[in-house]
Structure formats: structure tokens, C-alpha cells
Design a protein around this nucleic acid. Structure first.
Lengths: 335, 335
DNA sequence: CTGTTAGCGCCTTCAG
DNA sequence: CTGAAGGCGCTAACAG
């Protein structure tokens, strides 16, 4: 059986209240000699307070839940690393729930989260409508999401300057002499998709290139989902550049180009978004917008912990900057 | 305040024991009418049992901890997905601790794990010596690791037929006509490294190719760590093929080849190990051994849950098979 | 079949 | 400054 506070008290020859005071650094002073005896006993018995027992009396679990439909997405890994680091530093534990986008899994995860009375929740990869639904089924705890929400109040939000970044990237491609620029977007429910699309449109319009609806194709943010659109854009529309709303889809474009014998960047320029580590290792290296994943994760967790601790001063919306990485996948062509 | 079992009892007009019996599907029958009234009250109040309170009396947390030095490693993602899926299905929650290989973080994570009295622990990415150290500091709970352990008993083990798989891959490369085959290995503490090296040696010896110590270079399993070794093997040793102990290092080789103007596979053949999804999108696609990551994760969690539930019949060691993916990165050359 | 009671390990008044 | 006592939400005997 694990050693309990009783064992420690007995060994130190004090009451359990005293032990509790000592190990919780209570404001009430404790006689130095007693204090030392208690710590002695703690060490000797290798005592660790039972977090579950603490939780039921303090109503604090020192635990946060992270819910995502797809923890497999490589961009989330940096986020998860950043989150974990901050949480660990503050002695918080992270419960990870992956739903695979499955409704049953979602319900199961929500139930577990609810029953464990976590101190806060972070959502990764949900769009606003969905989030609203999920949040309704959960108790009121501090929440942080990776997205910019327009309608939901009092929720911490971490995101990047998508629109601006995609604008900048598009502009760069235009500067390189491209005028027929295809775009593989994602599901329109996501704010990030709307934002990036807006950036694309603005860049075209500022350069006097008329927006052509047909050059915008829908992907599902996975590699495979970009292969069909790539073929369409390249072979049917004859674009000279393909911009993808994330790096994974750019990989799909690379693959399709290999298949149909188009060389990157000689025949087709390609760019992505996210700045996955892999993208640097493609041949040619992928031009992309780097999102500061680890920092986003860290900031999200910091924000959540602040909210948990009741710090009201912090900004609820945190917008970080992307960085355009100009690599060989985009070619400067003669105009 | 959250609704408690008392609220439900009051609303249903029964005692809390009855409520407990109903919601826990106790073997003692409960009068159908009462049962219905209880469920009614549960629904009406949206009652969820407090897992923490349950834990302190049942001594079961329905929680498992996963500890890894690097959850960012892409191969672990599939594992984590598989684990989560199985856990969720069985109403277990997964606590994820990432240590970044930092000793302080490790201690912090172990403390948290200890204090939360988890039902089981899974270690990802530790070698045997390290594991021993970690396990000593933890209470006795069921444990599963991703590795084959020689000295530690009573620990669930999930691994693949490394040696055989690497043997097969090496043999394939030899069949393709290569005789001067460089190898970028990893830190020798890892069993997987020893195994794969053994496979490499066996293949050479069976083909009558003498083993040359100088063609074995040490990497650290990261992309960057393979770049120097790649240059050495290619430019100084003049190998025609480079085998890497994981895919990440193969990416490093790709990068270095790009830099020094060597074409893959025309000038140099390259192979990896792991079968990351990304490897298919390289140009040329990478020849590699696919480890069944998701299945490994799922099996690991199943094994752990079995152990937790006291099922003794199961095999403690589970060895899964890799699958060689022959792709364009290895060229058949004239002998 | 159902309710009463006694803890689980801990924190937190409240007396001393 | 310290100990005794009550209670957090729940389960598990134990009586009825």
C-alpha cells in the first residue's frame, strides 16, 4: 500500500494537519524543528500526496484535457510539445483525447473529460460551429482553442496572421512572374481557410490579376486530397503555380507532378503553408509559411493556466506571426 | 456546483447506495421502477460520477500514463493514435508526458505520475538501462514498453522483427547489385540499433561481402545527424548505397545529396526504416521498412489494459512484422 | 432489494 | 503554533 499522510504523521510524531501544512507550504508558520521532522519522514517514506484525494477536497485536479480530431496531423505535434512543456513546468498533467473525427469517440471523450473534472480544456483543430456544440456538453471551465472565433466569448484563442501571411506568399509568387496561380483550399467551415483565401484574393486584386473561380479547388487538407485538384489545375487549367493551404496538400501536388512528369519548379511552382519540418527535405525544398507551432502550443497552455488561476489581465486573443520561407519550389519566370 | 450522487438520490427519492448500484450496474438487482427513476434523475441533472472520488475509494483511476522523451518523433504519432483509440474504447484516459530527454522534466513527470496513481504506464522511446532507472522510481503498476527487453521481467513488450527486416532490406539492396553499402546507425544503447545492425551484418556475410567497419557511421536518429555521415560515406568511402536506421536520417541523406550534387538513385541509392507516411512523397520515394505504428500502439494499450485487469493468459512479448517497401530510391545497378 | 454506515486520503475550519 | 474533527463524492460492507 502506498504511504499516506497518516504514515508520515505517525513517523514524524505529529498530526496529519501539521503534515498537510508543511507539504502545502501553508501560510501558517510551522515550528522549524517539526517542519524538518516532517520533511524527513516524507523523504524516508517516499511520500507523494494522492492527487485524487486532493482533488476531491480542493476541487482542483491540476489536469487539463486536450481534445483533437486528429493528433496525427504533423502540425499539431509541435503544438503538443509546446503545451506539454509549459504544463509540466507548472506541475499540470495533460490528458490527450484523439477522436479521429468520430462522433462516438467524441462523446466518449467528452464524457471522460466531464467525469474527471479537469481544470481546463484545449481544443485543437475544430471549427467554430463544431466547437459550440462540444462546449455545450461540457461543464464551465476555462477553454483555449486554436482558431480565431468570432461568436464565442470568453474563450482563449491562439492563431496566426493567416490572411496576411497567405497574402504575402501569393504576392511573392506573383512577383516571381506567375499570373495563372491555382489554389487548393480546404473545407470552408474553418476560419483559417476563409482567411487564407481572403489573403489570396487580395494579393491578386492588388496586382491587377482578375480572380478566376475555376482556379480555386477544394481539398480536404490531406496529401491524397490534393492529387486530383493538382492534376486538374495543371493539366486542364494550365496554371504555372499551385498554392496549397497546407504543406500536406503540397506533398500531394509533388507526388502528382512526379506521376504526370511535370518538374518542380521548372514546369510548375508549388507552395504550401504550415512550415512542417519535412518540407525542407523535399526535392526541391518547399516554399511555405512557417507557423510557430511550439510557441503556439506553449502560449496556449500559458493562457489556459492563467485563466485557470483567475488572472484576468491577460489578452484572450493571441495572434502570432508566420514567416515566409522562400525555397526552391517556386521559380522566377520570365514575364 | 456539479451535481453529485446526493442530488440524484434526492431527486429520485432513493438512497445514494441505490444510485451507486444502478449506475455501476451492480450485480445486486435493483427494482426496475427504482432503476428507471434513478436513470431519469441522472439524465435530468446531467449527472456524471466524479472520477476522482471514485478513484480514492476504488484505488483505480482508469488512467494510464504515457511517457516519452520525444513525442515529436513522427513514428510515435501513429503509436499514440493507436493507443488512444483502444484506451478511449475502454473508457480509459491517457496522460501524455513529454520530457524532451531532459532530466528535470523526467523527474517532474515521474512525480506527477506517481502522485496520480495511474493504473498503468507505457514508455515510448527509452532504452533498457534508462528504463530500469525510471521504473525504480515508480510504484509497482503494470508497464508496457516499446522495445524488446532482455533483463527486465514482467513488463509488456511491443516490438518488431527489426533484425530480420533490416536483413531483408540489406539483402534486397545487395540483390540490386550494390556491394559497397554504407550504414548510418543510431546510438548503440538501443536494442533496435543492435538488432538492425545484426541484420545488416548477416545479409552481408551471407552474400560473401566482407564487413567493413568504416562503412558504419553513427547518427543520432535525427535528420541533421545524418548529413555529416552521408557526406563521409559518399565522398570519402565511395559507397553506392546508404542504409539508414530510420527514415528521418534518410531525409538527411537526401538533403546532403542535393547539396553535393549527387542524384538519387542514379548516383546513390538510399533506404530508411520506419515507413513514415512522408517517405512516399519524397522524390524519389524512399525505400523503407514499414513498422505498423498504429497497430503497435493499439496492441500496446490492449496489453496494458489486460495486465491492469489481471488477465494473465496474454503473451507479454508481442513481435509484429515490418513490411519492406521497395521504392525508387534504390536503383538496380550493373554488376 | 434497499438504506445506513464507515471509511478512502486529504484539506480546512475550529478549538486549544 | 498545533491537533481534533468534519466533510469532499463515492463505494462497499452490513443490516434490515
Amino acid at each position: 500500500m502506498r504511504t499516506t499522510i497518516k504514515d508520515v504523521a505517525k513517523m514524524a510524531g505529529v498530526s496529519i494537519s501539521t503534515v498537510s501544512r508543511v507539504i502545502n507550504y501553508s501560510e501558517y508558520g510551522v515550528d522549524a524543528a517539526l517542519k524538518e521532522r516532517v520533511w524527513e519522514a516524507v523523504r524516508a517514506t517516499n511520500y507523494r500526496p494522492n492527487q485524487n484525494a486532493k482533488s476531491i477536497v480542493t476541487n482542483k485536479t491540476n489536469t487539463v484535457a486536450v481534445l483533437s480530431p486528429d493528433v496525427g496531423h504533423p502540425f499539431y505535434h509541435d503544438i503538443i510539445i509546446g503545451m506539454n512543456e509549459v504544463a509540466l513546468k507548472d506541475k499540470y498533467s495533460v490528458l490527450l483525447y484523439n477522436t479521429n473525427g468520430d462522433t462516438d469517440n467524441e462523446q466518449a471523450a467528452l464524457d471522460l473529460i466531464f467525469s474527471r473534472s479537469v481544470d481546463g480544456i484545449i481544443f485543437i483543430g475544430y471549427f467554430e460551429e463544431k466547437l459550440k456544440g462540444l462546449m455545450e456538453r461540457l461543464p464551465e471551465v476555462p477553454i483555449v482553442v486554436f482558431d480565431e472565433l468570432m461568436q464565442i466569448q470568453n474563450v482563449g484563442q491562439i492563431y496566426v496572421n493567416d490572411a496576411e501571411a497567405f497574402y504575402e506568399m501569393t504576392q511573392y509568387v506573383i512577383e516571381c512572374g506567375h499570373t495563372k496561380i491555382g489554389c487548393i483550399m480546404g473545407p470552408a467551415q474553418y476560419a483559417i481557410v476563409k482567411n487564407r483565401l481572403a489573403g489570396y484574393k487580395r494579393a491578386l486584386s492588388e496586382s491587377g490579376i482578375s480572380f478566376d473561380e475555376r482556379l480555386i479547388v477544394q481539398g480536404r487538407l490531406t496529401e491524397e486530397s490534393a492529387e486530383g485538384p493538382a492534376q486538374y489545375l495543371i493539366q486542364e487549367c494550365g496554371v504555372s503555380a499551385v498554392l496549397c493551404f497546407n504543406d500536406l496538400m503540397a506533398y500531394g501536388v509533388y507526388k502528382k507532378c512526379m506521376e504526370i512528369g511535370k518538374r518542380i519548379p521548372e514546369d510548375i511552382s508549388v507552395a504550401g503553408f504550415d512550415g512542417l519540418g519535412f518540407s525542407e527535405y523535399l526535392n526541391p525544398p518547399l516554399t511555405t509559411c512557417c507557423q510557430p507551432g511550439t510557441e503556439m502550443g506553449a502560449r496556449a497552455m500559458s493562457l489556459l493556466l492563467d485563466k485557470i488561476k483567475g488572472a484576468q489581465t491577460k489578452e484572450e486573443k493571441i495572434c502570432l506571426k508566420c514567416q515566409l520561407k522562400k525555397r526552391a519550389s517556386v521559380k522566377r519566370i520570365a514575364i
